[in-house]
Write a protein that binds this DNA or RNA. Structure first.
Ligand SMILES: [Zn+2]
Ligand SMILES: [Zn+2]
Ligand SMILES: [Zn+2]
Ligand SMILES: [Zn+2]
Lengths: 174, 174
DNA sequence: CTCATGGACGTTATACTATAACGTTTGAGG
DNA sequence: CCTCAAACGTTATAGTATAACGTCCATGAG
């Protein structure tokens, strides 16, 4: 039962580095698979990586419009579909929002920890947990094809700073 | 590791009994908590229990309209909110749909198995699994408030009848 | 080089899901 | 009876996602 490293980003971390790492990984993933990471797709991936809070499609759309280019819902949804297909982003079902994948290119089953206070969402890839879930389903004769595991609550940082009740910039970037 | 009973309903089961059991349990839950299970709320609960497939709010709305009564979205959404609050139904986030709770009145953490072939959704209440998830989150300093665990795939019945690929009446009742 | 092909994207319209806001009814308790 | 709050009716609107069709352009076969 090895102690895992905290999947939440630290408060003062160099987020530009998160973004550039994600973009570089995306280039490589697409390179390998022969897919085209067009400027638009790359831009949408940047927007998803704008923070560690899941972001809604229409919020991205507003930012795209701000770029001076024209943009309509299909613009962003098509890019999102592509990025989801490449495993470069994940969709958070309980928020109707999207977040960058922390382990692009790696085969992984994912669980999300979503802080209701600060909105930050961390991606776990707890194999033991994934196995336990698979085993439980298999015991009932069920063959899992896809999983949605989204745990909402409060991260350690928010609990430390607000021992009782939380508010502030909560939730999805709008 | 006791063998659990299959949470999926059998194909020829007496579903009227599912419905009447659910309604009786609802009466009791509301009785106990002093809430009012009005005719409308009761009707919506019946509609949710129309099958073991999650059903969308607007599908219920159509059925309500068919009753001869007038009905608008808030009609059904208010009833759903009430039933969710009472723990009589669950929302399936990945389908934007609702399904009856198999264990109303009991304190439980829930996992859903959603058959992509037949649409039937089963509710697990695997305490071991729930504990494992709680432990994993706790290891990362995360305090879980609510959980969304939705596993999509194929149930044993559908796998038996369609060894390769599935279609038919798949998915949410529309 | 030319043209057929298919992918990416622009554009418009529409479907689907959910809530805000306000007025009316209803029923329990005083 | 009267009052009050909950439940409900009604209209409008917000928020999320996709259908359908046309254009552009890179690629590669001929
Ligand atoms: Zn970062
Ligand atoms: Zn937090
Ligand atoms: Zn049944
Ligand atoms: Zn099935």
């Amino acid at each position: 039962m090895a102690k895992r490293q905290n999947p939440f980003p630290r408060s003062g971390h160099d987020h530009d580095r998160c973004v550039s790492t994600a973009l570089a990984a995306a280039e490589e993933v697409c390179e390998r698979s022969g897919e085209r990471l067009t400027p638009l797709r790359r831009r949408v991936l940047e927007l998803v990586w704008g923070s560690h809070k899941p972001i809604g499609a229409y919020a991205m759309l507003d930012q795209l419009k701000g770029d001076g280019k024209s943009a309509a819902p299909p613009t962003v949804y098509r890019a999102l579909e592509f990025l989801l297909g490449c495993g470069l982003i994940h969709r958070i079902e309980s928020l109707n929002a999207y977040v960058g994948c922390s382990h692009p290119g790696e085969n992984h089953v994912t669980q999300f920890l979503i802080c209701k206070a600060c909105g930050t969402t961390a991606e776990l890839d707890d194999r033991r947990l994934g196995d336990a879930i698979g085993r439980s389903a298999a015991e009932h004769g069920f063959n899992i094809v896809s999983r949605v595991i989204e745990l909402s609550g409060t991260c350690s940082r928010c609990r430390a700073s607000q021992p009782r009740e939380g508010q502030s910039d909560k939730g999805v970037a709008v």
